[in-house]
Design a protein around this nucleic acid. Structure first.
Lengths: 352, 352
DNA sequence: TATTTTAGTGCAAACGCTTGCATATATTTT
DNA sequence: AAAATATATGCAAGCGTTTGCACTAAAATA
């Protein structure tokens, strides 16, 4: 009963097509505008007619055409989410947080993965703005070194909130982790546990996160009175091969590190495995600590010390800011720093 | 330069608003229809005018309004993806596969999580059909025991492809894993490795997966000549508490299982940890095998035997089928069974 | 009772694009 | 040279809502 056979259409006489408010209007002998207002629960329509209309709508299986509604209102109630990868613990938690809040507020989310390609990022933003999303939440690629594509969004009045990997030179709200402090605490913790030759397996410095980590790494070592050996401070793309290569060199060199801090939890897992394969022990020979977390870290032996990031919360806050911009036209350009938690597990202190 | 000040509009004279094809048409003294055709690279427009139009469009920063285009064409180039959870290895791999293919074919994806609630599933399908998605790919909740909400989709001519958790009583294409066989092989492997008291920690039997697992579990035990003890065949919601409770009972009972098959990889990780905490050894005292996989299984000690599921491939195939329905009106109602791989690791055979 | 206010409904334009059909040249065919 | 065809463009309706304004009748005020 979801369709009517309409005979008043010229080109598609007798075409089977979904019920519209016009169909309802004709059936009930009221104007389409009355139907629209009734279904939107406008106070201008009497309760009696509302009831009649709602009843008929249910009866005929009427389903609002959001496309038409969006065109008319110039609002799609859709927000775009741009992330490097979906199959990643942190990002999927963030999206989870975004989706939950969005759904409750009557928004849909459009997701796209950049796979860390700047070109794809540009392309995605272009199509999202064509789709007329009401706003965008994005985590930039590591390749993103200029912001022209973001400027197009502002020019089109599409609010943007950046999270995690951001560009401080672009005016918009940003939600990030206190990366400097996370590294600082990690190093300090290792130093105070007696480790002296601390190495860092980091990501590409083109992104704010890695550069903040790098800075904190150097400065904290100095503060703790430890030497900074250049070969112990690596910036890689963190592919499995990169990790393998770096670790093999470290573990077989004359001067081994006695502690390793990895940028990602996946790297930590790989490193942990490699160390054990070399018959070295964690944390006695080498300590291990990760700047990102995922549940797996608690299931390996020994459990790996890590910085727990508030993914859900980051997503929720980003969405919250975006909604403020969308619904209250509140235009801010500040940076919110989310708290992290250094969770000390057995991989980072010697039992003595 | 993205906006024009329009003075020909009645109600919003002087309003700043995005460039439309009408603006381009006026600037170039051609008809809007010509602009539309030119930008869509219609063969009916001369190369010269196409060039002029494309150039002007770039110059003014014209960006197609997909909403209007969708309304006009009755096609949104958007597909809906409905999954229980995003932060789950298998599902995020599936979505990954869907997104990749979709993006390459010019489709956007709208994602929503049911969080395993039937009511939310219904609500999601309603709003997705209001959004006029061109098709939907869904993995049903474990609570979904009737298909009325799916019928509304067919009534609205929205193609649907189900994956993983499906309802065989609904006519549409389905992409699933050979769950029966996966369990069968898992049990057979354990039996042949000398384990005799095999237990299964399964999911809620309301869903096809768990019931296929259950069936295979019983039948294979029988075939292998092993006893089926009811307390060793559990169906739970697989929350952390459920797992804990079940395992505690098993491990402390007089009659312990000597092998455990878990429905999910997360459960396997938890079980592995609990077994070790009880000072029992894997695989000597108890073998462990999982019916779902995730990278973490390879990082724990011992590595956990598991059934690897082709997530990406499941996503790609589902999307491929959906595109066939959307673009070639191909209406099929068959079931594709994806191959899995039983990956035998150290958790499931004794070194002797 | 005459006048203003309020409540409930309808009219019609607008949102920006697509597309069937008509029209006007330009090109080819007889 | 006339007729038929091909090529390029314009016209206008249509997609399904929303919303400002106009209108009518009933209720409230003077």
């Amino acid at each position: 009963m979801l369709f009517l056979h309409k005979s008043n259409l010229k080109n598609r006489a007798m075409a089977k097509s979904p019920i519209t408010i016009n169909d309802l209007a004709r059936e009930l002998n009221v104007a389409p505008s009355t139907v629209s207002r009734a279904l939107n629960n406008s106070p201008k329509i009497s309760d009696l007619t509302k009831q009649k209309i709602v009843k008929k709508a249910a009866e005929l299986g009427y389903n609002l055409n959001m496309v038409a509604s969006s065109l008319s209102r110039s609002r799609t109630n859709t927000i775009g989410v741009v992330i490097p990868f979906l199959n990643n613990f942190f990002y999927s938690e963030v999206v989870n947080g975004i989706e939950e809040l969005a759904f409750n507020k009557g928004y849909r989310i459009l997701i796209a993965q950049t796979r860390n390609s700047f070109d794809k990022e540009k392309e995605i933003l272009r199509t999202m703005s064509a789709t007329r999303v009401d706003g965008i939440i994005a985590c930039l690629t590591t390749e993103t070194t200029n912001t022209d594509h973001l400027k197009i969004l502002s020019a089109n009045d599409i609010p943007l909130v950046l999270f995690d990997r951001v560009r401080f030179d672009f005016p918009c709200r940003k939600v990030i982790i206190d990366n400097y402090s996370a590294m600082q605490q990690s190093v300090a913790h290792l130093a105070r546990s007696g480790y002296k030759k601390i190495a860092h397996l980091g990501g590409p410095i083109t992104c704010n996160i890695s550069s903040e980590h790098a800075k904190a790494f150097k400065e904290t070592l100095k503060r703790e009175g430890l030497p900074l050996l250049t070969q112990f401070h690596l910036s890689t793309d963190l592919t499995e091969e990169d990790i393998m290569e770096a670790i093999k060199i470290w573990l077989t060199s004359r001067l081994k590190p006695d502690a390793i801090i990895t940028a990602t939890s996946y790297a930590a897992l790989v490193v942990s495995k490699l160390i054990k394969e070399q018959k070295l022990s964690i944390p006695e020979d080498i300590a291990l600590s990760s700047l990102t977390s995922e549940p797996a870290l608690q299931f390996v032996e020994p459990q790996i010390t890590s910085v727990a990031l508030p993914g859900r919360d980051t997503g929720k806050t980003s969405m919250d800011y975006l909604l403020n911009e969308i619904e209250h036209k509140e235009q801010k350009s500040d940076t919110t720093i989310k708290p992290y938690q250094l969770i000390i597990r057995n991989s980072s202190f010697r039992n003595k």
